[in-house]
Amino acid sequence: MNGSSTLLPVSETTEKNRSPFSFSREAYVVTREKVVHAILMLCALVSVFTTLGIILVLLFQTIEFFKEVPIINFLTDTQWTPLFQDKHFGIMPLLSGTLLTSLIALSVSVPLGLIIAIYLSEYAPSFLRKLLKPFLEVLAGIPTIVYGYFALITVTPLLQNIFPSLSGFNALSPGIVMGIMILPLVTSLSEDALRMVPKGLREGGYALGASKLQVSLSIVFPSAFSGIVASVILAFSRAIGETMIVAIAAGQLPNLTANPLQPVATMTSYIVQVSQGDTPYGTLAYNTIFAVAITLFIFTFLLNIISFRLRKKYFSMGGD
């Protein structure tokens, strides 16, 4: 047990008769580690290539599009009619449709989601929370096409009882249903943020004689604010990118309006509309979907990054 012989691996000292190749085990192990490392890195790089692929594919066709349509028209024209005789390529109607449905969705899911999140994290007995969390997850697991059917077949007729002027396709109904769809996201991310607030802060409030609601609203909520904002931003991004609900129930009519009772087209529903039709690949009309998609991508990308940064900062702050 002295000198450098103690550094030999077991295989060499105790297993001489095991296998004629045992002398090469060393090399085998070292090589295996390197090969595995390379393979795993390659797997991780797939995600980088995916992003790169998205950007390149979108950019490539979009450049084709902007060769024929000046970017200034794209940004300022108030009509979007690429599939008609009188072609206009203004993204604004699609943007307004997207914003309108998304804002309706947020105005349903944010207040409701935050109230439920505060209730779950501050008030609810643990059995109720254990019961409700899976319920919210089930809600989140329903395919969006089902929500689309629901919006068109059930919610729109229901709303027509309240708003007789509501057209069969409109922004309101898919907006509300989308709000229900993103409710689990807002609730569970906000609840995570609320539960990160240290117990000591709450106790400080109670010690001063504050009620549960006062503590929740004046201490817990502000402390978790950036985490909550991150969840709202993510929900916004999800609403902007949501496709099937609006494709089914919003009417696919590019309409520069803020009236939720009218049919609208969103960026996503327009892409579906063109994909479904028989617009030939490579034509100007076809390339419009890439220009629309890149706009969509930029919006969601920015929102995602902001949300990610906020969340990361918030959770690492509470972490130690």
Partner: peptide, 12 residues
């Protein structure tokens, strides 16, 4: 520890 160091002799 023996396994990861390449020992496969069961008796050992």
């Amino acid at each position: 520890g023996l396994k990861v160091n390449g020992v496969s002799n069961k008796k050992f």
